[in-house]
């Protein structure tokens, strides 16, 4: 599989990049690590006329604590570097764990945080070569009017598999989005749309420039967990990030976010409520897991029944909550 022709522009500043984005909006894509975009382009899923290479822009390659104690991370930060970054490990170990669980070391050596946050949604019927897709009519995600994965559905159900997404939402992170002349900062939760064919709120002339993780006033802890068929180089069957704040077994606030089971990360509000009301105990964990099962509106896709997905979600909730009552150990990804 080879790439088709395009123009390539390597700006020397973020400003230059944003100008180019504005001038070619609709026909431009930013290239950072390239591990997602170039694969999609090789499959003929995207065919931008212009590539703006932002991977090495110094403005996007920073990680620092701001005066309020929040952590600011540039979208161009390399995933391997972040995985080993001591500031991130100290401030947001759950995000570090999510990053370490992404793909393979080869991919992490190339890919960026921004790239993972924006990772295109995935589907059996979408992530295929042009040759493969020629056997079926176009789907919602390729400009058609049907979904092959969930037949009869009125929208695209491609899955959001960005491992960092649930962690960022659980951490209460803000996403910094820029375009020429303006900047907006939005909660990570609102960055995603529950629509496989258009899964973020990014406009064609915008780019994600960084993330802000509130660490200053936060007292709680966050844990991340991912279950994938294969431990390395695999997308999650399901992932979860949980943020709990409280004293001992009381729980002031709770945020539980499931990843890779829908077109957007799923925030389990009722499940969180169970914990706030009952505190954290073996019993409440069981109750929360059951609540999660009923709260999830997952659908059957051809090879993963809704039943299995709910089973998995229940396990994720149970296991991630258990890591709050276990003695703190370095978090490892769940073995297959």
């Amino acid at each position: 599989m080879r790439l088709l022709r395009f123009e390539h522009f390597k700006p020397s500043s973020l400003e230059e990049a944003l100008t180019a984005m504005q001038e070619s909006a609709g026909n431009v894509r930013v290239l950072a690590g390239g591990t997602d975009l170039l694969v999609n382009m090789k499959c003929g899923l995207e065919q931008p006329g212009l590539i703006v290479s932002i991977g090495s822009l110094p403005e996007l390659n920073t990680i620092a604590e701001d005066p309020s104690g929040d952590l600011r991370i540039g979208a161009g930060m390399n995933l391997s570097e972040l995985a080993e970054n001591s500031l991130l490990a100290a401030k947001a170990p759950a995000l570090r764990d999510a990053i370490k669980s992404i793909a393979s070391q080869h991919i992490r050596n190339m890919a960026t945080l921004g790239g993972n946050v924006c990772l295109d949604t995935r589907c059996w019927y979408y992530n295929q070569s042009k040759l493969w897709r020629a056997s079926r009519p176009a789907c919602y995600k390729t400009g058609g009017d049907q979904c092959h994965a969930t037949r009869g559905s009125e929208r695209c159900h491609a899955i959001n598999s960005a491992d960092t997404a649930p962690a960022l939402i659980a951490l209460g992170a803000q996403v910094v989005v820029q375009k020429k002349g303006s900047q907006r900062q939005i909660p990570a939760e609102d960055f995603y749309r529950d629509h496989g064919a258009r899964h973020t709120v990014l406009e064609p002339d915008e780019l994600l420039s960084g993330l802000v993780i509130p660490c200053g006033n936060e007292t709680g802890k966050t844990h991340f967990l991912k279950i994938s068929r294969r431990q390395g180089i695999d997308f999650a069957l399901g992932s979860i990030a949980a943020h709990l704040a409280g004293n001992g077994s009381t729980c002031h606030s709770a945020r539980l976010v499931i990843g890779s089971l829908g077109s957007a990360p799923i925030v389990l509000e009722k499940t969180a409520q169970v914990l706030v009301e009952a505190g954290l105990s073996q019993e409440s964990i069981q109750a929360a897991a059951e609540a999660a099962r009923s709260e999830l509106g997952v659908l059957t896709t051809l090879f993963s029944s809704a039943g299995y997905k709910r089973d998995l979600a229940q396990v994720l909730v149970k296991r991630v909550l258990h890591s709050f009552i276990k003695k703190p150990t370095t978090q490892k990804r769940t073995r297959r």
Partner: peptide, 11 residues
């Protein structure tokens, strides 16, 4: 090679 789940060193 990704979706046809060949085991790898972790397995």
């Amino acid at each position: 090679r990704l979706d046809y789940k060949l085991p790898r060193p972790f397995e």
